[in-house]
């Protein structure tokens, strides 16, 4: 029982990381219709940024998180400005920005590989290493910190989208770009902000995740795959869907790995099987789109 509960705590923490990456996909996908496979690279770059900031800059880990998010927000904004905006303004379809971002993915990855060696770098969590118990629930400091931070971020985004005029304008662009533009919403601004925000969220996910393992260039591909799988599982229409999808995916992965009578290598098949199943059976994910008010 204690074993199961401990597993659930760490699975929830993994699910929160997946959920944050899914949110990074969602922030770009909703207003622009573009799926940004570079989200995993942004998470990896965020982790490297936090490592440099706290190691060379000497900032405490808790401050390294917003600092890394800020660095990546700038990179995300630059990416939009350099590679996506020219395509959108030319009226190229959805495919062109997706492919341009794939090219950027390769560039990001190589820049990191060339700037750092292929080593793994350690990154401390804000509360260091240690174990904490709340009654039956037990887990590492970092696991509980990840869950708390993720909930705070999702509540923040939910309030932003539901309660502020700015957030509503994002939603309006997602529903109908042209109509939104005619209503006086600045499409350029919305697109630029969604890329900057998505990069910052992905970076946060990377920084939160890496104290549980290490900072390394290879962390980007699994995070990218688990992020879009979580997004499809939860449904691309709602912010909460990203978190729900992430948690469902992490539970399925961890419970299979721990309890299913199959070799652990085969448990890697859980994510693609879930993704294929959802795409074919429930393409809108667990959460449906809200009815129009």
């Amino acid at each position: 029982m204690a074993d199961l509960l401990e597993l659930l705590v760490s699975a929830t923490a993994s699910g929160c990381v997946y959920g944050l990456i899914a949110l990074a996909y969602l922030l770009v996908l909703r207003p622009t219709g573009v799926i940004n496979f570079a989200s995993g690279e942004w998470a990896m770059m965020g982790a490297y940024a936090a490592y440099v900031i706290s190691d060379a800059g000497g900032l405490p880990p808790i401050l390294a998180i917003p600092a890394a998010a800020l660095v990546l927000a700038i990179i995300g904004w630059l990416t939009e400005w350099l590679t996506v905006r020219p395509l959108v303004e030319r009226g190229a379809g959805h495919l062109a920005p997706i492919l341009a971002l794939l090219g950027m993915l390769v560039i990001y990855h190589q820049v990191v590989l060339l700037s750092f060696s292929e080593d793994q770098y350690p990154l401390d969590g804000p509360f260091g290493f240690g174990r904490i118990e709340f009654g039956l629930l037990a887990g590492s400091y970092q696991d509980f910190f990840i869950v708390g931070a993720t909930i705070a971020i999702f509540i923040g985004f939910w309030l932003f989208f539901e309660r502020t005029v700015w957030g509503r304008s994002f939603e309006a662009v997602a529903i109908n770009r042209r109509a939104a533009a005619l209503m006086g919403i600045n499409l350029r601004m919305v697109t630029a902000l969604s890329f900057a925000g998505a990069a910052a969220i992905a970076a946060t996910a990377g920084v939160l995740d890496s104290p549980r393992g290490s900072v390394e260039a290879n962390m980007s591909l699994p995070l990218a795959v688990q992020g879009f799988s979580a997004l499809i599982i939860g449904g691309i229409n709602r912010v909460e869907g990203a978190l729900l999808g992430g948690i469902v995916l992490a539970f399925a992965e961890d419970l299979t790995r721990r309890y299913a009578p199959i070799p652990s290598g085969l448990a890697l098949g859980v994510t693609p099987v879930l993704l294929i199943t959802f795409l074919l059976v429930l393409p809108n994910g667990i959460l449906r789109a809200k009815e129009a008010k």
Binding site: T83, P86, L87, L99, A100, G103, V106, I107, H109, Q110
Partner: peptide, 13 residues
């Protein structure tokens, strides 16, 4: 590999 990424972005743009 970096050249590959740059070539891709430039061609699309």
């Amino acid at each position: 590999v970096m050249g590959l990424g740059i070539l891709m972005v430039v061609v699309i743009l």
